[in-house]
Every structure is written in C-alpha cells, then in structure tokens.
C-alpha cells in the first residue's frame, strides 16, 4: 500500500541528491515563510484563521502577470505595485467585510471561506481557467559542483530576503510595527497601553495578505499562474503555522524552513503522497501534544 523507496536496484548519485534536495528545500522554504508570516500576522491580530490567504497569493501572481506582460512594467515595479495594491485591497476588505468578525474565531473563519470563494471565482470569470505563464526574471543556471541552481529561483531567494529584511525592520524599529507586535502578543495589554487597535486591525490584515500576494508575485515567473494556484500555498501555510504556533512569527520562520527542507529531503526516500501523509500525521500529533508550536510556551 505504501511504497517506501530504497536505492537497492539503481545506482544513485548521493552528493547530487542531497545537495540538490537541500538547496531546493531552502528556496521553497522561503516561499512558505512569506506565506506563513502573513498568515500568522492576520491570525495574531484578528484571531481569525484566514481561509482566503491562498487567494491573495493567487491575486498577487495575477497582478504581477498583468503588470509585466500587459503593462510592460519591470519585475521589481510589478512586485511593488502588487504589494501596494493588495495592501489597499486588504485594508478595504477588513473594514467592509471582516470588521464585524474581529476576535470571533469561528464566524470570522467561515466568513473568510466566503471571501475565498468570491476571490477565486472572480478570478476565474476574469482570467479563465487556463494556466498562464510569464517570462522568467532571469535565464540560466549556476552550478555548484553537481548541484544546479536555476537563476530564476535565485532571484526569488534574493527578493524574498529583501522583503523579509524590510518586514523585520518595520516590525522591530517602526512605531506602527511595534504597535502591531504588541497587538499580536496581547490585545488587552496593547489597548491598555493606548495603542489604537481600530487602526491596527486593517493594517495587520492588509500587511498579512499583501505578504501572501508578494509571495505569489515572486513565484509567478517560476511557476504558472491560474485561479486555482492558491490552494497549495494555503495548505502549506496552515502546516507551517501549526508547527510554528499560531500567531508566533519566529516559530513560523523556523517551521517554514524546516518544512521546505523536509519535503525536499524526504522525497528521495519515499513517494510524495506518503511524505504528505506523514506530514499530516505529524501535524495532528503536534496539535494534540504541543498546540503552542515548536517555539511556543508550553500550554495555552
């Protein structure tokens, strides 16, 4: 029933296998990281699990696609435009739709399911179901011994790192960022300290979904763009955030990189559906025995 793979029958190049798997894993881990930080930020601020998070990834990919292929913008400008557009969109959606559900875990979550249906099917109406592709940001391959590093993915790594550094700077060293972190950690204390949480809700939601959109925009040239691409990143963000602990940003960072590496390194040894099953099993155990996540305080 389950195929565990060994290498008995065929000769395998191990250096290539492990080296390549590790680099792939770190690159994909960075993508998961962008998704998961946005997700955990939204949860931290609103106490709402955002089922529409994957749809913002999809919107970001389409936004980059339209900016680059239709408006002929350079890629960097496309990513910037995507960030600003989705930040504004997220802000508006928070105020119009999500306002009534702040802090309401279950109803808020169901509302995001409705939001996801609207966004995904809206994209389907506008763009059609066929996958589109946009030109790669860079061509060519850098090789480190037997390990191949496609330039298109190295670009994603560079951009992701820049985004993460900017986010770190914002959260740690700006007034708005500090306030946001205070809200994520404990909204009552934040309120008591005079932080205007009315302003923090749409800001947190906007930045959270804009990060998902930037992840989508960065991955658009690497993968293809279609209305259904949001579901996988959403699932990965779920897993990362559970492993890292809901609302914990450092936890999400650690878990995202671990997940990326696990997926890539596990793959040479077992079939991908088996590694998925293993992962879900592990996540369930994690939720049961350590719901606060890898780095979280024990107990809730």
């Amino acid at each position: 029933m389950i195929r565990l793979r060994a290498f008995g029958d065929t000769a395998v190049d191990f250096t290539f296998l492990i080296g390549q798997a590790l680099t792939n894993g770190l690159i994909i881990g960075l993508l998961y990281l962008l998704m998961a930080i946005g997700f955990t930020l939204v949860f931290g601020v609103m106490r709402v699990v955002n089922f529409a998070h994957g749809e913002f990834y999809m919107l970001g990919a389409f936004s980059a696609y339209v900016c680059v292929t239709k408006l002929q913008l350079p890629f960097l400008a496309a990513v910037l435009a995507t960030f600003i557009l989705t930040l504004v969109l997220g802000w508006i959606i928070e105020v119009v739709v999500m306002k009534g559900f702040r802090g309401e875990e279950l109803n808020g979550m169901i509302a995001t399911i409705g939001l996801a249906m609207i966004l995904q099917n809206g994209a389907l109406m506008i763009f059609g179901p066929d996958p589109q592709s946009m030109p790669a940001v860079a061509e060519g391959v850098v090789s480190l011994g037997p390990v191949m590093l496609p330039m298109s993915r190295l670009y994603v790594v560079a951009f992701s790192l820049v985004v993460l550094v900017l986010l770190y700077g914002f959260l740690m060293h700006s007034k708005g960022g500090r306030a946001l972190r205070a809200v994520v950690q404990d909204i009552e204390i934040a309120n008591a300290q005079g932080i205007r949480s009315q302003f923090m809700y749409p800001l947190g939601f906007g930045i959270g979904v804009a990060l998902a959109a930037v992840a989508g925009a960065l991955m658009a040239p690497v993968f293809s763009v279609s209305p259904s691409i949001g579901s996988t990143p959403l699932l990965k963000a779920f897993i990362v955030v559970i492993l890292g602990g809901l609302g914990s940003i450092p936890g999400a960072a650690l878990a995202a990189l671990l997940l990326g590496v696990f997926e890539s390194v596990a793959n040479p040894f077992m079939s991908s559906s088996f590694s998925d099953m293993l992962l879900f099993g592990f996540v369930i155990l994690m939720l049961i025995f350590r719901p606060s996540g890898l780095l979280g305080k024990a107990g809730r």
């Binding site: 279950l106 779920f238 897993i239 939720l287």
Partner: peptide
C-alpha cells in the same frame, strides 16, 4: 475553537 478546526482539516 480554531485548533480543533485545523486538526480536523488535516
């Protein structure tokens, strides 16, 4: 709450 939702989702 959400923890139950997530575990059942998985």
């Amino acid at each position: 709450g959400v923890y139950f939702v997530l575990v059942t989702f998985c």
